[in-house]
Design a protein around this nucleic acid. Structure first.
Lengths: 147, 147
DNA sequence: GAGAAATTTTACGTTGACGTAAACTTTGGC
DNA sequence: GCCAAAGTTTACGTCAACGTAAAATTTCTC
C-alpha cells in the first residue's frame, strides 16, 4: 500500500479547505459538479486531498476570480489537462500515436484560448491603469491649487 | 429648452442597452440600485440616456467584469466621482474650501484603492501568463517529438 | 388619429455558487 | 472502548444580478 492509499500526509476536507481559503462546502460542491475529485477516500468515506489536489484548488480559484470563468468553463479547461495526464498512463509507448497528437493538440488549443483571455485582460487593465493614473495626477494638481 | 431636456440626440432604453451590450432590464436594475440614473425622462416617463450615461455604463461594466467588483462596491466608487462632479456646480468660488479638499481627498483615496486592485490583478495575471507560456512551450516540444 | 412598436411598472422566476441545518457515522486521542 | 471533533449525506435557504411575463401607457409612423 503506497503513501496515498494509506492516507499518510493527506489532508482531510477541513484542513484542505482552510489551507485553500475556501469552505468544506465549496470543495464538496466542486466534487459534485465534476471539477475536483479528491485523490482517494478513507474506508469510512472521508475525502483525502493530496498536494496536487491543493494546487488544483488554487488553479480553480485563479481561473474563477482572476479571469472570471464560471465553474463550467473551468471544468472544460481542466478537462484538457486531465486528458493529457491520463495520456501519460495510457502510455503503452507509441501505441496509438494519433491519439496522443489529438489530445496534445486539444490541450494546446485550450491553453492558447486561456492565453488569449489573459492577454485581453492585460490589455484592458493597462488601459484602465493609465486612465486611473491620469486621474490621480489631476486630483493631485487640484489639491495643490487649494493652498 | 436645451438639447438634453428636449430629448434631441438622446437614446431610449432599447438603443442604449443594445449599444452597451446589456439588456434594458439591466439598465433599469442599475437605476433601481442607485448606480445609474438616466439624464432625464420624457413627459411620459421614458428614460433618455446621454452619451455620458453610455460612458458610465461602459465604466460600470469594466469595473464589474474586469476587476470583479460587485454593484454595491461600484456604486461606492462612482459616488466619489459624482461628489466631485457635483462640486463643480456648487462652485460659489471658494465658498467652503475645506469641503472641496475633503471631497477631493476622498475621491483620490478611492482612486488609489482601485489602482491597487488593478495593480494586484496585473501582477497575478503576469504570473499566470508566464505559466501558460511555459506550458505552451512544453506542449509544442512534445508535439515535435511525435514526428 | 389609429395601430404597431417600444416602454412603463409590478412582480414573480432563475441561475450560479455556495451557506446552513439536521441526523448520522468516522476518526483520533486518551 | 469511549467520546468529542470532524466528516458524511440530504435537503432546503440565500444572495446578487438579472430574466421573464403581464397589463397598462407612450411613442412613432403612416
Amino acid at each position: 500500500m503506497d503513501e496515498v492509499s494509506s492516507g499518510g500526509g493527506l489532508l482531510r476536507i477541513g484542513k484542505a479547505a482552510e489551507r485553500a481559503g475556501v469552505s468544506p462546502r465549496t470543495l464538496r460542491w466542486y466534487e459534485e459538479i465534476g471539477l475536483l475529485a479528491p485523490a482517494n477516500y478513507s474506508a469510512g468515506g472521508a475525502r483525502r486531498y493530496t498536494e496536487e489536489d491543493m494546487g488544483r484548488i488554487v488553479h480553480i480559484r485563479e481561473l474563477q476570480s482572476l479571469l472570471g470563468f464560471d465553474l463550467g468553463e473551468i471544468r472544460d479547461i481542466l478537462r484538457g489537462e486531465d486528458d493529457l495526464a491520463g495520456l501519460r498512463h495510457e502510455y503503452r509507448s507509441g501505441a496509438d500515436q494519433g491519439r496522443r497528437r489529438e489530445i496534445l493538440l486539444e490541450a494546446s488549443a485550450i491553453n492558447d484560448k486561456v492565453c488569449e483571455v489573459v492577454a485581453g485582460k492585460q490589455a484592458r487593465l493597462e488601459t484602465m491603469m493609465s486612465e486611473l493614473t491620469e486621474k490621480s495626477v489631476r486630483y493631485a494638481s487640484r489639491l495643490k491649487e487649494l493652498d
